[in-house]
Nucleic acid binder design. Structure first.
Lengths: 238, 238
DNA sequence: CGCACATTTGACGAGAATCAACTGCAGTGG
DNA sequence: CCACTGCAGTTGATTCTCGTCAAATGTGCG
């Protein structure tokens, strides 16, 4: 699982140096818990306490004057949250737990690795991948809400989440956990709750997606990818 | 003008160290030109040749399978383009000139400053601000296309571009240059060319914006800000 | 059971895309 | 000099996507 951006406590990838396992052991010995709604970082505060998500979902959101909300990015297990470009960056969004979240503080690891990258080759790579992942996800999110239709947005998001859960080892039988309410999904995709509901129904009806037991299962991967990539096939299937 | 993210050739801010002016003089001695359509970096290529835009506009775009296009970010004078999170990052989008662009290569400066930040205190700050600016603009763009209505998006973009041009000293009488066609603006805001046209007419009719001579002038700053921040006042004015 | 909350449904209207045509304007060449 | 061309901007008619409002149904839980 040397793929991209995960370093889950207890499940270290092979090939770590002595320094790395030692550093991880220290930080991971203290796994904390936060309830839904808890803010890891408020708008405008300094992002000097980044965290690694162990389980649960964190959302980066911005609120408009009249109450509309846009979720700009999500962080799931194995991803870093409340992470600024620099340790002294200020939050441009609110980092809040969308579910119960288990996490570990990551600032100490970040400092140690930045100070002596040569001692932590694997960690250095993972951290860079995490930083780059943040950037990539923002670009994807912009394209998603900017140019895709409702069912295409949903497909795009489903695939994105599937791949990220897959890397973290949370997938089984083409399915991944989905604890978000349709209202929150609407805030991610920039659409109303009602339309989220109808769009999901369409994907189910067309045999692309199954939703049950707090999980989403992708039934037809090819069709899903076609939708997400913007092949304009509107009323596909029946 | 020690504000945020500009370092235009010939117009250095005061307070630079000897090393800084020397380094800038070398790089800025060679100002290059690229025509509209020229790609600074193609999708998937390594972003090892970042550039400082001296004049003109660069767009970061992604293309969908059926031809739809989303511009994810713009770079104008005083901003860095084709800049990855890391020197070895690969481009997730296409970096292409939207107008004729004058620019200077920036990789050499980036290396020098990263190697000995203490010699280049001001440049270090500017570069960090530029990296952070990229991140902030992506978040803003996501909110813009995700949750704002057409005229709100337009107002939000106008204000964003106004502020950025202001920092670079390109503003006069509340106005800034706007060389983009309505088609390109549509690709930025995620809307059709026709609707861009109608939305602009509405803003002009409502006395918020004036467009003439390749410039946009913001007539009513307060109303414009109210629109951009999402105070839901739909059919404002007449 | 009853309460709070999430999901679902229907009816309706607003916002935006699409299609197609027309205008205005600079550059080009006869 | 003026017709011709190409492109950006503009307009109108129509269709489609999606939001809004309101009510109903479902579900977990004290």
């Amino acid at each position: 699982v040397g793929a991209s951006n995960l370093l889950i406590p207890g499940l270290y990838p092979p090939g770590l140096t002595h320094h790395e396992t030692e550093l991880l052991d220290i930080s991971y010995s203290r796994i904390l818990t936060a309830d839904p709604g808890h803010e890891f970082a408020a708008l405008g505060t300094v992002l000097n306490r980044p965290k690694l998500v162990v389980s649960g979902w964190v959302g980066m959101s911005r609120l408009l004057d009249d109450g509309r909300r846009q979720l700009v990015d999500l962080q799931i297990a194995g991803e870093l949250t409340a992470l600024g470009v620099r340790p002294d960056s200020r939050a441009q969004v609110t980092y809040a737990c969308l579910t119960q979240v288990r996490y570990v503080e990551f600032a100490h690891i970040l400092e140690k690795v930045a100070a002596q990258p040569e001692l932590y080759p694997d960690l250095t790579k993972k951290i860079r991948a995490a930083e780059e992942g943040q950037f990539i996800r923002l670009i994807d999110q912009t394209v998603r809400v900017g140019r895709l239709l409702a069912h295409e947005r949903m497909a795009h998001l489903a695939l994105d989440l599937y791949r990220r859960h897959d890397r973290a080892g949370f997938c089984m039988a083409q399915s991944f956990p989905m604890p978000l309410t349709q209202e929150v999904i609407g805030d991610v995709l920039g659409m109303s709750t009602v339309h989220v509901n109808r769009t999901l129904q369409q994907l189910r009806r067309d045999g692309l997606l199954k939703t049950a037991g707090g999980r989403w299962q992708i039934i037809n991967m090819e069709e899903m990818q076609a939708l997400a990539s913007g092949t304009r096939q509107r009323h596909n299937g029946l």
